[in-house]
Every structure is written in structure tokens, then in C-alpha cells.
Simulated scan of single mutants.
Amino acid sequence: MKIFSNTINSLEQALNQSAIRQKVMSDNIANVDTPNYKAKDVSFSNILQKEIGNLQAYRTDERHFEFGSHSKENFKVFTKSPTSYQQNGNNVDIDQEMANMAKNQIQYNALVDRISSKFNSLKTVVKGGR
């Protein structure tokens, strides 16, 4: 018997993805002056497209979507194209990285607020509405 919905699990996965993005962007910023360093990025959509072909589940109606198992590795870190923004061969665009980091931080904070709200709702239910 399933007690909780998949919402908490989905929020946890989104928080993990945001943390992975933060780490990759932090690495890029830390290496902004490293000669020949190539910026890295994280891709989640490629894995999603791959998984869509593997989705299977029991459906009670033919109009329902098919869903299946989830892969443990749901992201891929890759090196960005071999361009250079600096004389030393480095391709880290610090302005872009900082903007992406700010966006990621806002998303992370929103996810934390949402999961906190879910846990507060569960706490209220456990306490009997008091």
C-alpha cells in the first residue's frame, strides 16, 4: 500500500538535479582562469528522451499514458563545445555562469519551499489538524 503520493519523490529528484547543476556551475566558475579549461554542463533531457521509449506500466484504460521504471542515472555531465572566450583557451563565460547560478538558486529555493510545505501538511495530518 502506498501511503504518500509521488510528489515528495519528484521534489527530491528535482532538488538533486538542482544540486548537481550547482556543483557543475561552481566548478566552471572556480576554473574561470584555468588555462584550456572547457566549461561543463548537465543534461537531463537526453536521458528523458531515452527513457520515454522504455516506459511501461499497467493501464486500466487505453487512454492512460504509459509509465515505467526510472533509471538511477538521470543526468549526464558533458563538456561544452570547444570554443574559447579567453586568450588562454578557456571557454567559461562568467556572466552566463553567474546568471545560470542565480536562476538555479531561485529554482532550488522554490523546491525547498514546496517540499517544506508538503512535510508541514503531513505534520498537520499526523497531529490531527492541531
Rank of each mutant, 00 (worst) to 15 (best):
K50W: 01
K50L: 07
K50Q: 09
E51I: 05
E51S: 10
I52A: 01
I52K: 04
G53N: 11
N54V: 07
N54Y: 02
N54T: 12
N54W: 08
N54F: 08
L55R: 15
L55N: 14
Q56F: 01
Q56H: 14
Q56K: 12
Q56C: 09
A57I: 06
A57Q: 09
A57K: 07
Y58P: 06
Y58T: 11
Y58N: 13
R59L: 05
R59G: 02
R59P: 02
T60Q: 13
T60R: 09
T60P: 00
D61G: 05
D61S: 08
D61Y: 06
D61M: 05
E62H: 06
E62Q: 14
E62T: 03
E62G: 03
E62C: 04
R63D: 11
R63P: 00
R63C: 02
R63T: 07
R63A: 04
R63V: 07
H64T: 12
H64S: 13
F65P: 00
F65S: 14
E66W: 08
E66S: 15
E66H: 12
E66I: 10
E66C: 02
E66T: 12
F67M: 14
F67Q: 15
F67W: 13
G68E: 00
G68T: 00
G68V: 02
S69H: 11
H70N: 12
H70C: 08
H70G: 10
S71L: 12
K72S: 09
K72E: 14
K72I: 08
K72T: 12
K72H: 07
E73D: 10
E73M: 03
E73F: 04
E73G: 04
E73Y: 06
E73L: 06
N74S: 09
N74W: 02
F75E: 02
F75Y: 09
F75P: 04
F75L: 01
F75N: 03
K76V: 08
K76T: 06
K76I: 08
V77M: 01
V77L: 03
F78T: 03
F78I: 05
F78H: 01
T79V: 10
T79W: 01
K80T: 12
K80Y: 07
S81H: 11
S81R: 13
P82G: 14
T83Y: 06
T83H: 02
